[in-house]
Nucleic acid binder design. Structure first.
Lengths: 167, 167
DNA sequence: CAAATATTATTAGCCAGCTGAATATATGGT
DNA sequence: ACCATATATTCAGCTGGCTAATAATATTTG
């Protein structure tokens, strides 16, 4: 989670650039800042959710289920959150244990199960989400509308850069 | 690592905002984008390092050791990368196993050990870092100098926002 | 100096999370 | 009816993190 405590100072980077001539200092500098903020954002969310005994994965599953009150299959949840069915089985086990979801046989497809949010699960979301959105507003209140638009555009470019970097 | 595959569309967000009136839609939208790029950046680095059998943590430890050729204590490595000594012992064990570092008794402080990078470890860095810096340049080549400065400023504001969000 | 306290690092035991392979079962197309 | 495919679970195995207990050594203080 990119937890290097102190980013290298310019002297350190200059030394590295001497050893590795392909190092473009301005590119590395902004990358380091981006990675650090990335890590900070992720940690921030993880720590917030941990106070409610949730991981990002469990949180997303609950939200997906809230959006689909009739329930979703394990494979749909796995696809929607980017993990294997095996992993999702484990996540659902955890949520079942905490009585936040139910898992019942699917009547349409008898290989499958339907996972659905319980009222306990919905109550948890009703407690967590308001605080969460409040945090989001606070974090993002540092940026005005123009800045948000700017950031959006810049991040889109970064994403495009990530997509090309498969070498 | 924020792997919700499809960000919610505006209809979905609007429905959420109905249920949770404190949800400020523009703040949530930019936060979602930021979190997604954060996750993408982290995944990108993790996947790159995994090809060389490294985790972020191991990578940072090696870099710290390269910067300090006389070696560092376990506690210094732990502090520098934000984990407990117990965890760092495990990380160092892994690096020892791969012959990337040595661990020897500290002569100054006989409670302590000095961990130092081996020539094998340095050779690994000499193989990994050029590719890494090349990737960094590629990712960041999407932004010109003005945009980098902008991004830097915007990310600083986000960080400031994160610092205040402890509620 | 001696005793109490701190620090350093390791070990052991625990848990979350992820994967791939093997398995059982059900589906759907031919 | 048959065969390939899809669904989900279980299992063994890995990483990686934590705490608490322990042992050894340093440091501070009476």
């Amino acid at each position: 989670m990119f937890e290097i405590i102190d980013l290298p100072d310019s002297t350190t980077i200059a030394k590295l650039a001497q050893r590795y001539p392909m190092l473009e200092i301005p590119a590395l500098e902004i990358w380091l800042i981006l990675m650090r903020v990335s890590g900070d954002c992720q940690n921030d969310l993880d720590q917030f959710l941990a106070r409610h005994n949730l991981s990002q994965r469990k949180f997303f599953v609950l939200i997906l289920l809230m959006r689909n009150p009739t329930g979703l299959n394990v494979s749909q949840l796995a696809a929607g959150t980017g993990v294997s069915c095996a992993t999702m089985t484990g996540v659902v086990d955890g949520l079942l244990n905490a009585k936040l979801v139910t898992r019942e046989a699917d009547e349409q497809d008898r290989r499958a199960f339907v996972v659905a949010i319980t009222s306990t699960g919905q109550e948890l979301l009703d407690r967590v989400l308001p605080r969460h959105y409040h945090r989001v507003s606070r974090i993002m209140s540092m940026l005005d509308e123009t800045e948000r638009t700017q950031l959006n555009g810049l991040l889109a470019k970064v994403r495009a850069g990530l997509a090309t970097a498969d070498a």
